[in-house]
Design a protein around this nucleic acid. Sequence first.
DNA 1: GAAAGTGTTGAAAG
DNA 2: TCTTTCAACACTTT
Length: 273
Amino acid sequence: MPELPEVQAVVDSIKPLFLSRKIIEIKNPNSYKSVFATHSLEKLNGLVINKRIKNVFRKGKYILIELESGYLAVHLRMTGNFKTSSDNESDAKHISVELILDNKKSVYYKDYRKFGRIYYFNDLNYLENKLGCEPLSKDFDYQFLKHGLSKSKSMIKSKLLDQSFIAGLGNIYVDESLWLAKIHPEKKSDTISGIKIRRLSDAIPMILKKAIEHNGTTIINFSFGNDSIGSYKEKLNVFGKTGEVCIRCKKSKIVKIFVSQRGTHFCPRCQKK
DNA sequence: GAAAGTGTTGAAAG
DNA sequence: TCTTTCAACACTTT
């Protein structure tokens, strides 16, 4: 799915469509009801209709549409996406939400695997409690990581995927960060040396920033806003590189294993346990 | 043509 | 309380 950089790219692409507009109606074109996570379609309409949109931003992997009062939130999960048109037949059956704006234009939420969800929150308390540190904020530093990891017996990969610890990392950027920091993905969090934690605390924001500059990574079936393509894929060093020679040591081949059921790519020579 | 695989997360189980 | 496993779903690849 869209991880932090991809969600940011989506936010950047939809923000101009929403800013200062009002939603005049929400529809459910394919009748998939589960997309509405917190309120029924009817209740949601009651809560958002005719409220001016003040801002659109990202928190973890959530997209937040801030209204005069309250927030409409969207989580894309694996295959969620926004479009400004629904022109073909195959789109139609996957469009679970249509937001009709006061300029008569619509923004469509399309999600063929139907994992994505739309929420309404009165305030940000719920998300702030649930989500951990923003990896691009000042709070994310060596001390934060060192302290957090020292208390965890989980494997480092699982820990970095834990959204209540760090909000926004997913499978791709965790693999990339661990490769850059030369840490084995199955290494127990509380046994990682200070020097490696230091490298990791540098690697994570660096990789995320670079990925944001490239509008994220488009793989398999995720792209953002109207199927625009993120170009960070060309910058990946390990993710999806199974069998290729590691570009750093130029000796070992990238190996793929499963760590807590997630496909995990690493260089066995650079990333030793 | 059947089976496995796919970027996430929450609930359930351990 | 913390950590791991599995299901939600549809489409592509093997």
